[in-house]
Simulated assay, not measured.
Amino acid sequence: MCYSAKVWQAYQDYVRRFGAVIGIREFAQLYADRQKGAKVKTTKAMDDAFLRAGTSETRGIAQAIEAWNAEQIAELERLLFRQRRRLVDAERTLRTKSTKKALDDQRIASNRIEWAKGKLADLHRTVPVERDSRIFPGMYAPVMVIEQGRRVIKPMRYQCRPAGKPAVYDTKYPGTYNARRDNLEGFWKGQFGHTHGVIVCDAFYENVSRHKVEGCALADGEAEENMVLEFKPQPQQDMLIACLYSHWQGDGEELWSFAAITDEPPPEVAAAGHDRCIIPIREEHLDTWLNPDPNNLADLYAILDDRQRPYYEHRMAA
C-alpha cells in the first residue's frame, strides 16, 4: 500500500500546467469546517499556498487559515507553559527524592515540550521543506477531476468513503486510501468507470520489514522491525497518479475523499520489500481517465497498463 506520498499542494501549479480551475466552494468549506472544530487535517504546503496567493477569490480562505494558525499558536503556548511548570515541579522533587511520579512527569513534560516547540516552529516557519507536502491517510490534498467539461481542483481526504456507504466504513475498512487494481470491479465498482481523479506526486513512502529490505530471514524468536522507505522515480519527475474519488453525503454532512489505485510492484520495489505500487498514468491519457466511460472499462484498464514505468530508487525516509 502507498501509505504516504509527497504531492503537489499548491493549486496554482495545477492551474499553470493543466489549465485547471480551483473549487473555491469546497476549499472554503473545508477550512471553515476546520476552524469550527472539525477533524480536518491539511498539510502546511497546502495552507501556505493560500496564504501566498494574494487573490480576491482566496482571501476568505487565507483569513480562515490565519485565524486557525493563531489559535494553534495560542494553544501550543499554553501547553508549553503547563509542561514547563510540570517539569520544574518534577525536577524540584527529584532533587530530594526519586519517585515514579516525578520521573514520569519529567519524561512526559520533556517530550511534550519538544513536540510543542517543533509544532510552533513549523507554524512560524516561512521557508518550505519537503515534509510540508507529504500526505498520510486521513489528510486532505488537492485532487484534479473533471466537472462540466473543465479540469477542477478539489480538496479531498486521502481515505475514500464510497458514496452510499455508512460513515463507519472509515473504521471498518481503514485501508481504503488505496484501491487495489484487482478489486476495481468489486469493492470499488461504484467509483471505477464513474469518478476518476489524479494527484501529482514525485515520491511515495512505504512501510517495509527490515529483514525483507536486507534480504535475510528472521532468526528464531526475532521480531520484525519496521522501517519506512522513500521511493523516487528516476529520472526525477512529477507523476500523475491514478485515483478514484467519491462525493459522500449523509446526515447533513458531505465528504470528498479519494484513494490511489495500486498494482503489482515493479522489480525494484518488490526487491525493497514491498508488494504494491501506485500507478502513474501518461499525460496523453489524462482526459480519457478523468472522463471515464463505464461501458468501456477495457479502455481504462489499458490506460493503467500503458503507465509510466520509471525506475524507483529508494532510501530510508527522513
Rank of each mutant, 00 (worst) to 15 (best):
M144E: 07
M144N: 12
V145P: 08
V145H: 10
I146A: 11
I146F: 13
I146R: 15
Q148V: 14
Q148K: 15
G149L: 11
G149M: 11
R150D: 08
R150I: 07
R150G: 10
R151H: 12
R151L: 00
V152N: 09
V152D: 07
V152Y: 13
I153A: 04
I153D: 03
I153P: 04
K154F: 15
K154H: 14
P155Y: 14
P155L: 04
P155M: 06
P155R: 04
P155C: 09
P155Q: 06
P155W: 12
M156V: 14
M156L: 13
R157V: 07
Y158T: 02
Y158R: 03
Y158E: 05
Q159S: 00
Q159C: 08
Q159P: 04
Q159E: 11
C160M: 12
C160S: 05
C160A: 05
C160L: 13
C160Y: 04
R161H: 11
R161D: 05
R161V: 13
R161W: 08
P162W: 06
A163T: 06
A163Q: 02
A163F: 07
A163V: 01
G164L: 02
G164E: 07
G164S: 01
G164Q: 10
K165H: 11
K165C: 00
K165I: 00
K165Y: 12
P166A: 01
A167W: 11
A167P: 10
V168F: 10
V168H: 08
Y169F: 09
Y169E: 10
Y169K: 11
Y169S: 08
Y169M: 02
D170Q: 14
D170C: 11
D170G: 13
T171A: 15
T171Y: 15
T171K: 15
T171D: 14
T171H: 14
K172C: 04
K172R: 15
K172P: 08
K172F: 10
K172T: 07
Y173M: 12
Y173Q: 15
Y173K: 10
P174L: 12
P174F: 13
G175E: 10
G175R: 05
G175I: 00
T176Q: 04
T176E: 08
T176G: 05
T176V: 01
Y177K: 00
Y177D: 01
N178E: 05
N178Q: 03
N178L: 00
A179Q: 02
A179C: 05
A179W: 01
R180S: 03
R180D: 08
R180L: 02
R180Y: 05
R181C: 12
R181T: 11
R181G: 14
D182V: 06
D182P: 13
N183C: 05
N183D: 11
N183K: 13
N183Q: 14
N183V: 04
N183F: 06
N183M: 07
L184P: 06
L184C: 07
L184G: 11
E185S: 10
E185I: 04
E185P: 09
G186I: 01
G186A: 07
G186C: 00
G186Y: 00
G186S: 06
F187C: 02
F187S: 03
F187M: 01
F187L: 01
W188K: 02
W188I: 01
W188Y: 02
W188H: 02
W188T: 01
W188P: 03
W188M: 04
W188C: 03
K189E: 01
K189H: 06
